[in-house]
Design a protein around this nucleic acid. Structure first.
Lengths: 344, 344
DNA sequence: CGCGAGTATGACAGCGTTGCCAGCGCTAGC
DNA sequence: GCTAGCGCTGGCAACGCTGTCATACTCGCG
């Protein structure tokens, strides 16, 4: 057993510490867990010994003995690196503040076995709780199974699912409503929409909020289907800009498709925002990199992740204390891609 | 104890299975671990019982008993969501094929305590091995400590560090050399460079390869400092395009800065690729979303991650079998932002 | 001066698995 | 016919912690 703090052997155990400090392992354990009823002098001696031997407790053994693994997992699909990465940042940060580690478990949204897959993952890894990211968080079967297993979970989504013991709901509908109203206020009347994948609840929310803000129903040919991918945005933009009466404003349900609109507009010499206003959703990196910079809607992803994680850890600490679903208001980021329509 | 595959209690243990199958727990364990010397009939009975009870072994207990946690970790900074996410995808995929889970441990590149932080993380979590992503993989103190602890690690970087028991080295220098030569072949003579952060080895490599390809030394005022961020790209592009003799080609050391060049060029009505060719590095999502689409260099990130993970798992299985460092060749992706210079 | 209550510590038994070794029955070899 | 050797199985002791309960000691109060 190597001595000294640096490079101490990985195999220093609680027994070594107890022996060196002249106390029982139970007392060392108490010090480690900041339990009450330890004498000041004893605590001091133990801490010094721990330091001297370079001991760190084995999370494995602790897990087995205490029934808690100090591991939480994040369940994610990854259609959008920007979103995942911002969320992960908030989760990990909160985890490490509380002595937890984060395990990532990617899944595929379309997989019919997805709930079974998550269940088997939880059984194997024995994580203490899960955070489920969108769009996977829209699948009710997952929280249903987790609750049945007695494993706490928090979902982050745009709609509230009763199956989740706790959720963080971002009000995407409200935000797109606000965006829609803003376009109308600016004087736009020929307003078009590029939708997200129809089986995503978030896409439905964004559409519903936006449409509700318009003074009259949107004509069918102004509603284009998209799948959040760049190619689909290109196709939709081509279709819209080829119309006899092209729109003066387009809301694409994410920034990637909005970027595609900008590209098509540029190729066709349609001036943005003069002839055409364009708005996106997500405030991803590209929103400020394209020309003109995109007006878009921002979700405070990292903060949401932090909040979700705090909630999850609270549920783990107190399995009975109910955690309410919380709603998050989003903000409209105004940049250069939206302006009043030019007079013709 | 609930019966049936779906929703079986989390607390079915190996004892329950052994009892139900009429064998000892040791035999169940053997079946679980695909150990030899188990009778066909016995194995069949045990497997059926496992299935019937919906049993899955506790990774925690297994970790304690076997000395292996079946957890590996990825150490990452996250300057670039695209890169991290592509790498993570490859790692996780390989992990789950081999029954491992992935723990993420984010760090900050500039943190002077970074090696100590990683060490303490490893001690606590007792992961079986680590994959270190760039740019953190350029810090030699990290593999040095890990090796001392006896924990296998694999680094992914643009340069080979002898401290790593195994590395995956992407030949960024070779790739930017090729890009430089290509620009020269096209007839460019006034060629400029926007560098990455000087303390990143990758940035040094990209610069060195590119400069080596040019027929003569690059004038100082054509070499602009950047930090891989969009803002720094804007500033560098402004400086370059304000020169009396502006360059006819700019290589920005990542796509984000290259996108910034495009934005500035557009604002100044500099035609790309006619008056100015622009190249980036990474082939990130935005490379194909900007107008014109960027010529850039692609690292096969997901494949690299898979390979690194396979290597790590092999090292875990056989701690003595040396794993050589491997070099990866990168490919030049030609899009619309590069063309021969216009005759003047 | 005795006793109850509170504080500090330790002994012991798990937690759910695997490592190690012993032992069973059977076959092959002399 | 006896034994060595092999295939299969089980018993027991870890692995490094925490939970629970017991114990020793201290203090204050009637």
């Amino acid at each position: 057993m190597v001595q000294g703090e640096f490079g101490a052997a990985l195999s220093v155990t609680i027994d070594d510490v107890a022996q060196a400090a002249g106390v029982s392992i139970r007392t060392v354990s108490r010090v480690l867990n900041k339990a009450p009823n330890v004498g000041d002098q004893t605590r001091k001696t133990v801490l010094e010994t721990i330091d001297k031997l370079g001991y760190s407790p084995s999370i494995r053994a602790r897990a087995l003995a205490s029934g808690r693994s100090f591991l939480i997992a994040v369940v994610q699909d990854d259609p959008n690196a920007h979103v995942i990465s911002a969320l992960q940042r908030g989760i990990v940060e909160t985890c490490s503040r509380h002595g937890y580690e984060l395990v990532v478990h990617p899944v595929r949204f379309g997989d019919p076995e997805i709930a079974a897959d998550v269940e088997s993952f939880v059984r194997r890894s024995r994580v203490d709780g899960l955070i489920v990211l969108p769009p996977t968080s829209e699948i009710a079967a997952i929280p249903a199974r987790l609750t049945q297993l007695g494993v706490p979970s928090v979902g982050i989504a745009s709609v509230s699912l009763p199956e989740y013991p706790s959720m963080l709901v971002s009000d995407e509908r409200g935000a797109t409503f606000e965006l829609g109203r803003r376009l109308v206020e600016l004087g736009h009347r020929r307003i078009a929409l590029i939708e997200g994948p129809p089986h995503f609840r978030s896409a439905q929310e964004r559409r519903a909020g936006f449409l509700a803000a318009l003074p009259e129903p949107m004509p069918e040919h102004y509603r284009q289907k998209g799948d959040y991918g760049f190619e689909s945005g290109l196709a939709a933009a081509e279709a819209l800009l080829s119309l006899d009466q092209p729109p003066t404003a387009i809301f694409a349900c994410n920034d990637i498709m909005a970027a595609a609109v900008l590209k098509v507009a540029r190729e066709r010499d349609v001036r943005v925002p003069g002839q055409l206003s364009v708005a996106g959703f997500d405030d991803s990196d590209i929103a400020s990199m394209v020309t003109p910079a995109l007006t878009t809607i921002r979700r405070p992803l990292t903060d949401m992740a932090r909040l979700a994680t705090e909630t999850l850890l609270a549920m783990i600490d107190d399995p009975n204390g109910a955690q309410p679903h919380k709603s998050i208001t989003l903000s409209l980021i105004q940049r250069q891609s939206v302006a009043p329509p030019e007079k013709t």
